[in-house]
Structures are given as structure tokens and as C-alpha cells.
């Protein structure tokens, strides 16, 4: 089992006012799954993703990652897991400004033990169809291309899981479709994808959807007719 959450809760203490965001979430994710976490804003889906992605720690509950209890992992170990096992794709891309596409993708490698940075980054960019854009500055490319650079950056350390938080949220439908196609392709290659979205059509690109409302999983469904291969014109 890759991800095994047992009765996870999360509380925020805002100067004495305790807000409980997650109310006992239990969830199992196998390696190679394509999971969508769906829910309206404020439902706790982002918080859940942050906890699964080791950006945050649960208040109570057990989180086993790769069959290891992560409760007592020090911060530096979590940083290493984020670097080696996890790739993040954010809604707002979060590329470094005034930095080349290639250097943006190299960034995670600078925190890893891996070598051959340029080759690895080039390969990652080629796999998202941006092999011709290596030297471009991150502000010289379109939104769709930016998100593909972000995917390449998430891929470059060869992680087990890729987390995508509303990856199509800032994109037009065509660029969004391209991004979803790439995520599906990565899943086909055996990588686990966890997608967070509030949009049912985006969520249906996954093989399984869990729905969260008020900090609890209210639905866990397998998708029989995964939306696949929406044709997009290549605009690059």
C-alpha cells in the first residue's frame, strides 16, 4: 500500500479559536492509481492533499506512506520525501520568474542527490512536449506551457506520486485538456496521480473519485468511463 490514512484529523488554532478542518479521514491509495479528490471550496480537500503530500502534518491519526508510519519523521526527512517521492503541480504554476524553463525544471534536482541535471531536465521537458523551449524565460511562454513546465519539474526527480492541485484552474479548456492528457499518460506509465479539483469533468479524467464535504469523505467511487484523449490542436 502506497498511501494509507487512518482517521486523520486536522485542526487549526487561530489565537485560541480552534477550527477543525478534517474530521477523521481514512483513505487507501494503491500504487498506480489515478485518484481525484473532489469537493467544494472549504471542504478540506486542499488540506488533505497537503497532508498526503507531506506539506503539513495531521493533528491526529496515522499516515503510513510506503508501509512506514510517518508520524515521527523529522522535517528534513519529509523534505527528502517531497523531493524524491512526490511531485507537485499547482494551480498557479509557481515557476521562478526571470529564470529559464530549463533552470526551473532543474530546481528540484539541486536539492537531490541525483546527477546529470541538464540531461534529466531536458528529458522531462521533452516528455511534456517542450523540448524546443529549454532556453525560454518562464515569462515568455503561455499559461498552458507554464503548467507543462511545472509538470516536467514535478517529474524530474522520478517520483512515485504526482499531486496536482487544480492544475487546469488557470488554463483555457484546450491547454487544460493537454495537461490532463499528459497526466493520464504519466498514469499509464505507472505513476500514481492524485488530483484535487472542484470540477466534476476534470475529476472524471481519473479512475477513482473521492468526494469530501465538511472535512469528511462522503463518496468514494470507481469511474467506469474515464474521460480520455480529448483531442487538442497543437498550438505550440
Amino acid at each position: 500500500m502506497l498511501i494509507d490514512l487512518k482517521n486523520i484529523t486536522k485542526e487549526y488554532d487561530n489565537s485560541g479559536v480552534v477550527t477543525r478542518v478534517l474530521h477523521g479521514i481514512s483513505l487507501e491509495v494503491e500504487e498506480g492509481e489515478f485518484l481525484s479528490i473532489m469537493g467544494p471550496s472549504g471542504s478540506g480537500k486542499s488540506t488533505l492533499m497537503h497532508i498526503i503530500g507531506f506539506l503539513d502534518r495531521p493533528s491526529t491519526g496515522i499516515y503510513n506512506f510506503n508501509n512506514e508510519d510517518t508520524k515521527d519523521f523529522p522535517d528534513d526527512d519529509l523534505a527528502r520525501i517531497r523531493n524524491e517521492r512526490i511531485g507537485f503541480v499547482f494551480q498557479s504554476f509557481n515557476l521562478l520568474a526571470r529564470t529559464s524553463v530549463l533552470d526551473n525544471v532543474i530546481l528540484p534536482l539541486t536539492y537531490s542527490k541525483l546527477e546529470n541535471h541538464i540531461e534529466r531536465a531536458t528529458k522531462a521537458l521533452e516528455s511534456v512536449g517542450l523540448g524546443q523551449r529549454l532556453g525560454f524565460m518562464s515569462n515568455q511562454i503561455s499559461g498552458g506551457q507554464k503548467q507543462r513546465v511545472a509538470i516536467a519539474r514535478a517529474l524530474v526527480c522520478d517520483p512515485k506520486v504526482i499531486f496536482a492541485d487544480e492544475p487546469t484552474g488557470n488554463l483555457d479548456s484546450k491547454s487544460g485538456a493537454t495537461v490532463m492528457n499528459i497526466l493520464q499518460k504519466l498514469n499509464d506509465e505507472g505513476r500514481t496521480i492524485i488530483l484535487v479539483t472542484h470540477d466534476r469533468t476534470v475529476a472524471e479524467h481519473a479512475k477513482r473519485i473521492i468526494t469530501i464535504r465538511d472535512g469528511m469523505i462522503v463518496m468514494d467511487e470507481k469511474i467506469a468511463n474515464q474521460i480520455r484523449n480529448v483531442p487538442v490542436e497543437d498550438r505550440d
Binding site: A79, R82, Y111
Partner: peptide, 15 residues
């Protein structure tokens, strides 16, 4: 934001 991103992709506080 850059600091957040760097941490998300694996930078430790020390780094």
C-alpha cells in the same frame, strides 16, 4: 511563494 515552492520540491529549512 518561491520559498514555499522550494520547500515543496524538497528544500530543507537549512537549505
Amino acid at each position: 511563494r518561491e520559498i514555499g515552492l522550494r520547500k515543496a520540491i524538497g528544500a530543507t529549512s537549512k537549505q
